[in-house]
Write a protein that binds this DNA or RNA. Structure first.
Lengths: 203, 203, 203, 203
DNA sequence: CATGAATGAGTGTTCATTCAT
DNA sequence: TATGAATGAACACTCATTCAT
């Protein structure tokens, strides 16, 4: 019998190492050798688990998104509408160190995707999923009477995405200008605009 | 006698070529040779006008910002407060092809700056300037009574920046989801939140 | 209790897979993994039956020669002289698909042997054997009076080898220029030169 | 003004270094680094003059053929028919050290071409040219009455090619079996078969 | 001023081989 | 006996940079 290794776990370790390298050193300094060193394995191991650097990077991006979604799904069990949307936003915003790393990964991939059609495609598909999940929560909110009259759901979805992306960027580039307080204030402002006072900010 | 060339003009040409390469091919494929080819000049010319690739890229970023600011300043001669802010926003948003290129440049530099402290510093300085210009317009607006009562100027400035960055990103990555109409609607929503009905949306 | 496998048969399977890979993909693309895949066995199996890639390739070359010799020996039971030589030549020339594969293997090993003294040595030994077998048939032919007067047996042996090698090469590289007809014509011409009208060309 | 180098001469130097490496170390050990070392230049120089290894190798093959042809053309000025063909053959056969190197290059490329359609195409084109040049000499010979009655010119051309290739191979693999004398004897035998007593062998 | 030849470190990747299971 | 995970050296190639002209 061959050496027993958990294939998925090993992949996950490498992907996590990739996250760390991207967030710390930037995409331009993310080399396969650096990833291997960070993962504490030899270089050739990467070739076992990923067909190449492109595939590894794509997997790292998708896995990061899946991570966020997984956390959100757990928290949102039994929730719907605006509370669920708020959870989704809170898990998506760079409010703590772990999520700042996720934001840096996200930001790194944006520019990296320019001139890289395959990656553009993946990112479009990923954002489609997120858009749909936000939209669904807003539809639930509308059906539950949580929205301010006249709120355009499509536009509100766009606002949510713009907020996530904008704050991810700012937490990456200008962290001192993007405190947790500022982020929550902008989130509250958005929710107020949509029409629903947030549970937390209600006295 | 040396060939007569306008030093600044030559620099500008090279910088514009750099913009085109970044926006078209992406930062990862932006090589000095590619820039030289795009600029229609020999490779060694770059070394005359820029001390190296990093300096060229930094100059290209700063020049792009200066471009936007120059256009805005011209249009805002004699304006102040919210109308001036609206002009600033309209010039900063990726509303046409030229400004989409600028957005792509911006997005490209975000991820590229991670792990690149010198570039981070430049970008912080740049955003400081933009933040101050927006803030100034909001202070004018407040003094002219254009703001909704209770508007937090700092937070409103953050919202403007978040909108610019968020839409720059989305116009780059998901152009079909980021039409001119969507952008203007989000801009109007933001101005409405701040408290000032936009001139266009006023009946 | 270990799995019962016929050791020699397993070796033969792997060698045949090696032949196919060499003839199809070329020596430069003949990797141990590719051979394992072609043989339908795991990678590590090769290490059981062959001490390394070099040994496997050498075995494959020798086995290919042994294959030709085996076929020839069966057909030549009871024959001698020029008829036996003709059989030998017919079995050695790339006259059908199977023998074209053998020719491709042969051609692949020629260039591969340059700069590889161990392989050169093997090939010299192999060609020594073939030379001797051809020479023996020519000696028989001479003793049986089948040769044209004045035929130099050593030189005739060289001619036979040159024909085999030359046609192996041409069938590999320029198959459309190396039809069965062309090959047989050249063979007949050679036999005519040696002095023995071939059975086919005799009216 | 840039550094003055003769572009073609530099290419020729690199190609000659490539020849030496191939003939000495074999195709499998012909790496770009080895070629650079042999050429006495840095690795990156190769990239200046050749778009890649494939292009360099193809150039080396074609240049080797052009070399032979150039020598032949010079010697054959004013000649035609069988004497010209004899010169062509003498220049094409591995009769001295220089031509043995050419033969090793040729042999190296044969096997290397398997599984390499682009190279196969080049080699077909090259052999087409050689075939036509031999055929032309035989047509001249026929018109000048130098051929034995009934000689098939196409078949004689094939015989010439087979002799060149066969002896190139044998001089590469089994040099001690392929002395100059053996080669000349086989050449004379071929010319005798064609029907024209060679000038040398004529008393 | 301008050229482009030259450099060599660094990249992603392939591969034969080893070895614990 | 058989597996395939792991290794790391070697590969072709890219690229920013230097420098003689």
């Amino acid at each position: 019998m061959p050496k027993i290794v958990d294939h998925d776990e090993r992949r996950a370790e490498i992907i996590e190492a990739t996250w760390r390298v991207i967030a710390r050193d930037g995409m331009a300094n993310t080399t396969t050798r650096q990833i291997a060193r960070e993962a504490g394995c030899s270089f050739g191991v990467l070739a076992h688990y990923f067909s190449g650097k492109d595939a590894l990077l794509a997997s790292a991006l998708i896995a990061s998104h899946a991570n966020v979604r997984g956390r959100t799904d757990v928290l949102n069990q039994g929730r719907s509408g605006l509370p669920a949307l708020r959870t989704l936003m809170l898990e998506s915003l760079p409010l703590d160190e772990k999520r700042i790393v996720e934001a840096k990964i996200e930001v790194s991939f944006w520019g990296f995707a320019i001139g890289n059609p395959a990656l553009i495609k993946i990112q479009n598909s990923e954002v489609d999923g997120l858009w749909e999940r936000i939209h669904r929560r807003l539809r639930e909110a509308r059906d539950q009477g949580e929205l301010r009259a006249g709120t355009d759901i499509d536009q509100a979805t766009d606002s949510c995405l713009a907020l996530i992306d904008g704050l991810s960027l700012r937490a990456t580039m200008y962290p001192q200008r993007t405190t947790k307080g500022i982020q929550l204030a902008l989130l509250d402002a958005l929710f107020e605009l949509i029409g629903a006072p947030s549970p937390q900010s209600a006295s």
